[in-house]
Deep mutational scan, measured.
Amino acid sequence: CHSECLGNCSQPDDPTKCVACRNFYLDGRCVETCPPPYYHFQDWRCVNFSFCQDLHHKCKNSRRQGCHQYVIHNNKCIPECPSGYTMNSSNLLCTPCLGPCPKVCHLLEGEKTIDSVTSAQELRGCTVINGSLIINIRGGNNLAAELEANLGLIEEISGYLKIRRSYALVSLSFFRKLRLIRGETLEIGNYSFYALDNQNLRQLWDWSKHNLTITQGKLFFHYNPKLCLSEIHKMEEVSGTKGRQERNDIALKTNGDQASCENELLKFSYIRTSFDKILLRWEPYWPPDFRDLLGFMLFYKEAPYQNVTEFDGQDACGSNSWTVVDIDPPLRSNDPKSQNHPGWLMRGLKPWTQYAIFVKTLVTFSDERRTYGAKSDIIYVQTDATNPSVPLDPISVSNSSSQIILKWKPPSDPNGNITHYLVFWERQAEDSELFELDYCLKGLKLPSRTWSPPFESEDSQKHNQSEYEDSAGECCSCPKTDSQILKELEESSFRKTFEDYLHNVVFVPRKT
């Protein structure tokens, strides 16, 4: 048989008469490798580009789960590009990614509803959504962080984005990388972005840091009482949809009607710091009717980097990364020049730590249904340095008659930039024990000054392991946590139920 035959053949030295091919099969003959313009397919066939392209389009058009959109890589027609490569849609070739590779997620039936953290986790790592997304989240724990972890990498949506009755959302900033909504599939009414009845939605994105392009379709905003109209108009300008909307697409009466839409800028007039305090004062603000001013709200939190936005980490279910302080308005003076500047002394802060701070007014709604208010920009203030805590785990070892090696770990709280350490030492008198000992005694162990690591005695271990207080009263049991108490109650309830079950099964009433 021919060298490319495997198993047997019907005619000697003829690659077209093989029972099976050793390498690849091409047009009725066995070959060692697939010549151009053919590609290896499933490690035994040679196919042309049209064959591989037909497989790709067949799966793409069917949208069946589990099928493969075949691509070409290293002269092979394979189910998908290997790690580190992405497909070129024009020629199906796998090309190296520039940075992290995109991950295209194809949605069944063309859309997916995100109504819980669990459903959001199914899209973790996706960068391109081939379909439409509907966000409908009523509640949950730590929602802002969970949504950002699972949806934060999405850069492109081919269909539309719909935010509907998501009472738990305060902001859409968890879509931190969303840059493009194509609108290839539109919501009824030709809408590519749809926001309806979101009672706590206050911000779409921080438009000073976020760009969003909507290729096709219109915007729809109705019944978002805490979303200011200025935020919607800003989205029109940034996304390129200005002029597409009709009169009733953006409701003037049901958007922002319960919001404090600040239209003035508060400026800080005085800032002073110490290692654990920050004193702030800002310019006074009074609405047209000074009785509408209820006070100020001061927001602050630790910020290692200057990239904080107002609604980071917030949701309507209680999660809030900001510390909020309510401040009463100052006494009002008739003389504008003698107006008191409101302020606040922030206490209990960490030394040498940068804080993000902003302040906003708290006002009631005027009778004319106009909203007044003022808010400052987010500023960054760093507390002063102070003395560091003591170095940890000092170790001293003498390696000769004239040297001592000293080692330690950095302090747990540096409280500033540590530039150097101060080492103090003092000579001590020799131990009298060394002169009084009889060095001729056998088995004498000389006193040693070398360091030995501390260890816990058996008594201390027994005390720590004991669940009861000892007789001397030195140790006591740790208080039980809520989960331990709940577990004990469940076990007790189970024992009672099981005992009742045994009584009912074992003891049967005697027939009379």
Rank of each mutant, 00 (worst) to 15 (best):
V104Y: 08
H106S: 11
H106Q: 12
L107N: 11
L107I: 06
L107E: 14
L108G: 14
L108T: 06
E109T: 13
K112G: 15
T113M: 03
T113L: 12
I114F: 03
I114G: 00
D115M: 02
D115H: 05
S116P: 01
S116L: 05
T118S: 07
S119M: 11
A120M: 09
Q121R: 07
L123Y: 07
L123R: 00
G125T: 02
G125A: 07
T127D: 09
V128R: 11
V128I: 08
L133R: 00
I135V: 13
I135H: 15
N136K: 04
I137A: 10
R138C: 06
R138K: 07
R138P: 05
G140M: 10
N141M: 10
N142V: 08
L143N: 06
A144Q: 14
A144T: 03
A145M: 14
E146L: 06
E146R: 15
E146D: 03
L147K: 00
E148I: 12
A149Q: 15
G152D: 09
G152Q: 15
L153H: 05
L153I: 09
I154T: 05
I157S: 00
G159S: 03
G159C: 02
Y160V: 03
Y160I: 15
L161A: 04
K162R: 08
I163A: 02
S166T: 08
S166K: 00
L169Y: 08
V170L: 09
V170E: 08
L172D: 00
S173K: 09
S173I: 07
S173M: 12
F174M: 06
F174L: 11
F175V: 02
F175M: 12
F175Y: 02
R176I: 08
R179Q: 10
R179Y: 10
L180R: 11
L180E: 15
L180G: 07
I181A: 00
L186W: 05
L186Q: 04
E187T: 05
I188N: 02
I188T: 11
G189T: 15
G189A: 11
N190Y: 04
Y191T: 07
S192F: 00
Y194S: 11
A195Y: 00
A195V: 06
Q199P: 09
N200M: 10
L201D: 00
R202G: 15
L204K: 01
W205R: 01
D206C: 08
W207M: 06
S208R: 07
K209G: 10
H210Y: 08
N211E: 08
N211D: 08
N211T: 13
L212R: 00
Q216K: 00
G217F: 00
K218S: 05
K218R: 08
F220L: 08
F220A: 12
F220G: 13
F221M: 12
F221G: 03
F221C: 12
H222I: 04
H222T: 01
H222L: 15
K226A: 09
L227F: 02
L227I: 07
C228R: 03
C228Y: 02
L229G: 02
E231G: 13
H233A: 05
K234G: 08
M235I: 14
E236N: 12
E237F: 14
V238G: 15
V238E: 04
T241Q: 07
K242A: 06
Q245D: 04
Q245N: 14
R247F: 13
R247D: 06
N248L: 11
D249K: 04
D249T: 12
I250F: 13
I250P: 04
A251K: 09
A251Y: 10
A251L: 09
K253G: 07
K253E: 11
N255M: 03
G256A: 14
G256L: 08
D257P: 04
Q258G: 02
Q258R: 08
S260G: 09
C261A: 07
E264C: 05
E264P: 11
E264H: 02
L265G: 09
L266T: 04
K267H: 06
K267I: 14
K267Q: 12
K267S: 08
F268H: 01
S269C: 13
I271M: 06
I271Y: 10
T273F: 12
S274C: 10
S274P: 00
S274R: 09
K277N: 04
K277C: 14
L279S: 06
L279D: 05
R281T: 08
R281P: 00
W282V: 07
Y285N: 08
W286N: 05
W286T: 07
W286H: 01
W286A: 03
P287D: 02
R291E: 15
L293W: 12
L294N: 13
G295Y: 07
M297D: 11
L298K: 00
F299R: 15
F299K: 04
F299V: 12
F299M: 06
Y300P: 00
K301V: 03
A303K: 15
P304V: 04
Y305I: 05
Y305R: 11
Y305Q: 01
Q306A: 06
Q306F: 14
Q306R: 13
Q306T: 14
T309H: 08
F311E: 14
F311T: 14
F311Y: 15
D312G: 10
G313Y: 05
Q314E: 02
S319P: 13
S321R: 13
S321H: 10
W322F: 09
T323F: 09
V324W: 07
V324Q: 13
V325W: 14
D326L: 01
D328M: 14
P329Y: 02
L331D: 10
L331F: 12
L331H: 08
R332M: 03
S333R: 10
N334R: 14
N334Q: 12
S338Q: 11
N340Y: 10
H341G: 08
P342C: 15
P342H: 08
P342G: 15
P342V: 05
G343L: 04
G343F: 04
G343K: 09
W344N: 12
W344Y: 08
P351S: 08
W352E: 03
Q354E: 05
Q354A: 06
Y355K: 00
A356N: 01
I357N: 00
F358C: 00
K360N: 06
K360R: 10
K360Q: 12
V363I: 15
T364A: 14
F365G: 07
F365H: 03
D367H: 02
E368C: 07
R369E: 03
T371G: 03
T371K: 08
T371H: 12
Y372P: 11
D377A: 05
I378N: 01
I379L: 08
V381F: 02
V381C: 15
Q382N: 06
T383F: 00
N387G: 15
P388V: 01
S389N: 13
S389V: 02
P391R: 01
L392D: 04
L392A: 03
P394E: 02
S396A: 15
S396W: 03
V397H: 13
S398N: 07
N399A: 14
S400H: 11
S401G: 12
S402T: 15
Q403C: 02
I404G: 00
I405H: 05
L406G: 04
K407L: 12
